[in-house]
Amino acid sequence: MKNYIDFVADASWNTLKGLWVTLKFLFLPSITVQYPTEKIVPYPRFRGMLAYDAELCIACGMCVRACPSRCIALAKAAPPPAPPPAADGQPAAPAVKAGPKIEWYTIDYGRCNFCGLCEESCPTKPKAVWHSLDYEAVFSTREEMVRRWKRGDGPWGTVKRSADAQPSAISDQIHIQDMPVRK
């Protein structure tokens, strides 16, 4: 009986000590973030959703080879036609301004591991494929997870609703927070 009372007293005392610890934090500011209304901006090295810039891409295919899960695919553009040979006494015709060196580029977000190996292997400066800070991605079908850029499209993360419309941000697919931060 005495043991029992001792145990109850001991347990109560220790519970009070534990409660004192919790009480100390009761009046400190909250450490939680109310997610949909408050959002944390990740650190610059954060590996979020992949972003891509066709203007910088040289279609070397390093990212395709680096990816462990084969989520990237691309096709090189046909080389621009060579300028006509200069006629005698005439200055050579200026070279045709080369467009993007890439025909199409695909990222399958359903397979992406967010490991950063593609970004690390990208030889251009700044990187043509990089992890943005975006961590909010919602897809409703598997087909949506495969994002494709092809010649004539606007920047990555935008879509043309019709032939003459200006590219606008994809709102129902990938929502890049503000602008993807360039590293």
Binding site: P42, Y43, R45, R47, F114, C115, G116, E120
Partner: peptide, 24 residues
């Protein structure tokens, strides 16, 4: 860890012969 290597749970921080990034 997020500030150091970009991952919060799955880091992929090490590389053969070293690590991927120095301390920010």
């Amino acid at each position: 860890f997020e500030e150091l290597c970009g991952g919060r749970l799955l880091y992929t921080y090490m590389r053969f012969g070293g690590v991927s990034a120095d301390l920010p």
